[in-house]
Design a protein around this nucleic acid. Structure first.
Length: 427
RNA sequence: GGAGAGAUGGCAGAGUGGUUGAUUGCAGCUGUCUUGAAAACAGCCGUCCGUGAUGAGCGGACCGGGGGUUCGAAUCCCUCUCUCUCCGCCA
């Protein structure tokens, strides 16, 4: 949520920057400011009324104390009209506040100046490419065929148990999941992150805090009986750890890492692009989250990008880093770097991580602030990134490291997996 | 699931209708003292909104959330949420 004070002071700039994001409803900005103007006017009147009422109430108390009942009773009747007026003003205020809030939460975050112009994924800027694209032998298979050959996971079984998009991992496929999670967590711990095991169901206030609600509830599974949502990412519960907090400046940055399963309804497309593990409803992810000082959050973003890079290097996967253009960025983000791993057998880039700075967009919703050296209260910046999301990493790992003898496990991962190769004849 | 108790400022803990945004203690900040620190003493010490210059000051709101009674509510009533204790069930 954008800060109303900023909107008030820089309406044209806000519109220009929203346009870069290809936000189609620029008229909302003026509507918000109109509502804001109205709100302040009503607030002023109401405050004056209440002040008058307070004054009268005090006087009446005094008069009663002095035993001047007659005069007290006279004042009582004088408040009736004021009260009725205040009641109406209060109602108006609530309405206009609600209206302003409803409009305000529809505005996406403003893009950072580094964000490239552009409408779609094709306009994203590749800022770095690392590693040689592998040349696979003839007959190289996509991961879903490899999975079948080596018995690593089954989507059919998932359909039986739950439905489409709920893979069942087994044998070395399951152990590989566990190895990756442990590996990612350990690397994050080494980088100074504090490990968190969050709830996987969240309430609506939490989902609002990080920007999932309203509007994007379609992405989440909703447990209606209790009004809880299954988390689409650990970002949601972990970032909300600091909701409603005023933090000590010295405690920044707060660094959290959490493993969690993630649940996404994703009513997206079907077909070739979503085969195998490319898009599923339930998957594993290790997420890093930082609560940063606003003056330093872009250094933090770079640090997180480097962290993710090191993971991909350790897994010996060719990757590129892409800076998302205005039209391709998420609602809440100010600047996002996507990590894509090249999947040789599918001959395409797979998004395996997304690292973003949300600046004050989430903290303004969550009311997460800190007291700076001048005792002034300011909103923090929040950041997060996948480090990493498993399914596509597994896909890339299987495809890029396949050999005639089996699937080679990268050296860095072997202490966690307990095996060096996946072959057809081991459980 | 059943029964009871409770929710007050960073923490502890008063306050049951009238200058109470709220006694007090601890923590924190500033000053005096000290070579420095501690101790002692004095002062300050919530958030949000409105209005000012993002200052001071002034006005308003907030004692878990929402609603009600009243000239006036932290204090009374209703309701929701949460916490604790006991019982039941249970990984």
């Amino acid at each position: 949520m954008l800060e109303i004070a900023y909107l008030r002071a820089h309406p044209d700039e806000v519109k220009a920057r929203l346009a870069k994001k290809h936000f189609p409803e620029l008229h909302l900005v003026d509507e918000i400011l109109t509502a804001d103007e109205k709100r302040r006017q009503i607030q002023k009147q109401l405050d004056n009324n209440l002040a008058e009422q307070n004054k009268l109430a005090k006087e009446i108390g005094e008069l009663f104390k002095q035993g001047r009942r007659q005069e007290a009773e006279e004042r009582k009747s004088a408040t009736a009209q004021l009260k009725e007026q205040s009641r109406q003003l209060e109602q108006q205020l609530t309405e206009v506040e609600q209206e302003q809030q409803n409009l305000l939460v529809r505005l996406p975050n403003l893009p950072h100046r580094l964000v490239p112009e552009g409408r779609s994924a094709e306009d994203n800027l590749v800022v770095k490419q690392h590693g040689k694209l592998p040349e696979l032998p003839q007959g190289a298979k996509p991961h879903w065929e490899l999975a079948e050959q080596y018995g690593l996971f089954s989507l059919e079984l998932g359909v039986k148990i739950t439905g489409a998009g709920f893979p069942v991992y087994m044998g070395k496929g399951a152990r590989l999941q566990r190895a990756l999670v442990a590996f990612f967590l350990d690397r994050a711990l080494e980088a100074g992150y504090r490990e968190v095991v969050p709830p996987y169901l969240v309430n609506s206030a939490t989902a609002f805090g990080t920007g999932q609600l309203p509007d994007k509830e379609g992405q989440m599974y909703h447990v209606t009986e209790d009004d809880f949502y299954l988390i689409p990412t650990a970002e949601v519960p972990v970032t909300n750890i600091v909701r409603d907090d005023i933090l000590d400046e010295k405690s920044l940055p707060l660094k959290f890492v959490a493993y969690s399963p993630c649940f996404r309804r994703e009513a997206g497309s079907y077909g070739k692009d979503v085969r195998g593990l490319n898009r599923v409803h339930q998957f594993e992810k290790v997420e890093i989250v930082q609560i940063a000082h606003p003056d330093k959050s872009y250094d933090t973003l770079d640090e997180m990008v480097t962290h993710v890079e090191q993971l991909l290097q350790a897994l010996e996967l060719p990757y590129r880093i892409v800076r998302l253009c205005g039209g391709d960025m998420s609602f809440a983000s100010a600047l996002t770097y996507d990590f894509e791993v090249y999947s040789a057998a599918q001959q395409r880039w797979l998004e395996v991580s997304s690292v973003s700075n949300f600046e004050t967009f989430q903290s303004n919703r969550m009311k997460t602030r800190f007291r700076d050296e001048n005792k002034k209260i300011r909103l923090v910046h929040t950041l997060n990134g996948s480090a990493l999301a498993l399914p596509r990493i597994v896909a890339a790992l299987l495809e890029n490291h396949q050999t005639p003898e089996g699937i080679r496990i990268p050296a860095a991962l072997q202490p966690y997996s307990g095996f060096q190769i996946i072959t057809g004849n081991t459980p």
